[in-house]
Amino acid sequence: MNSTRDIDALIDMMARLPGLGPRSARRAVLHMIRKRSVLLAPLADHMRKVAETACECAVCGNIGTSEICDICADPKRATGQICVVEDVADLWAMERGRAFKGRYHVLGGTLSALDQIGPETLRIPQLVDRVTSEEVGEVILALNATVDGQTTAHYIADQLDGRVRLTSLAQGVPIGGELDYLDDGTISAALSARKAL
């Protein structure tokens, strides 16, 4: 009889999370067990609540606990701008910066012939519908600077051509970045997007 079977199962589940391997998962579980009244029990309660209530926003694809997320429901948000992102994690990263005051649209990934992800798999048709029905003036393509991200951006640009102003995020040298540590693609993008002082 294995007296640690449930603990081992918890470690195995934790090790499946991004950024955690078996050793990190073991340390996290051990720490939670030692602090079970202030960590483990409340964490289990919150996980149960989130499992029951988490859902995708019917408008933008964000994750929340109601049919329409807080961002889409906020009347102070600019309705004329939609920032298109690949994933909810990208939306949350944009929100951390607190610079964008418009609305979002989560695609749910990028086009990828290798992974057999076509336009119908992503939320591109919903984006086209939103641009038409919400009287959007600008769509900001905030997709990752990968081959799949750029392919997706070009596809969306073709779908929305002539309907709306299309922009993309600037790419190049990050604030505090040193040229010596940057890759060739970043330097090339920064040089191409240079501006007058």
Rank of each mutant, 00 (worst) to 15 (best):
K35S: 05
E135S: 13
L127Q: 00
V147H: 04
D74Q: 08
R23A: 10
L111K: 03
L20P: 09
P125E: 08
T65H: 10
H31C: 02
V85M: 05
G137C: 01
T146D: 07
A54E: 09
R26P: 01
D6M: 12
M1A: 14
A196C: 02
Y181H: 11
R163Q: 15
Q150P: 01
R16G: 07
S3L: 13
M13W: 05
L166F: 05
A89S: 13
I156S: 02
L143A: 05
R26Y: 09
L43M: 13
T121R: 11
R103I: 04
S188Y: 06
A54K: 06
V29H: 04
K35L: 01
A113V: 14
R34T: 08
G64R: 07
C55L: 11
V139N: 00
G118L: 10
D45R: 10
E95V: 08
L39G: 00
M13G: 08
A93Y: 08
H31N: 11
I63G: 02
A44N: 02
V88I: 15
I11Q: 12
I68H: 14
L39A: 11
N2K: 09
Q150F: 01
R130T: 00
E120R: 08
D161A: 15
L179T: 07
T167Q: 07
L160A: 01
C55V: 03
S112V: 06
V164H: 03
P18V: 04
G118Q: 08
G64F: 13
C72A: 08
R16E: 12
M94S: 05
D161W: 06
P18E: 04
A9K: 12
A58I: 10
D158N: 10
L169A: 11
R165H: 13
C55H: 02
G108W: 07
T121Y: 00
I117Q: 00
T167W: 12
V139S: 00
C60I: 13
V88D: 04
K76M: 07
H154Y: 05
T167Y: 10
A142I: 11
A170K: 11
S133L: 12
R123H: 14
G21K: 03
A157P: 02
D129V: 01
T186C: 07
L191G: 02
A99G: 13
I124E: 00
L91T: 05
L43I: 06
N2F: 09
K195S: 13
G21V: 03
L191A: 08
A78P: 01
D45S: 06
V147I: 15
H31M: 06
G185W: 07
G102P: 08
L122K: 04
S37F: 03
E95C: 07
D87A: 12
S188V: 10
D12F: 09
L197D: 09
R26G: 15
C57E: 03
D12G: 10
D6S: 14
I140D: 02
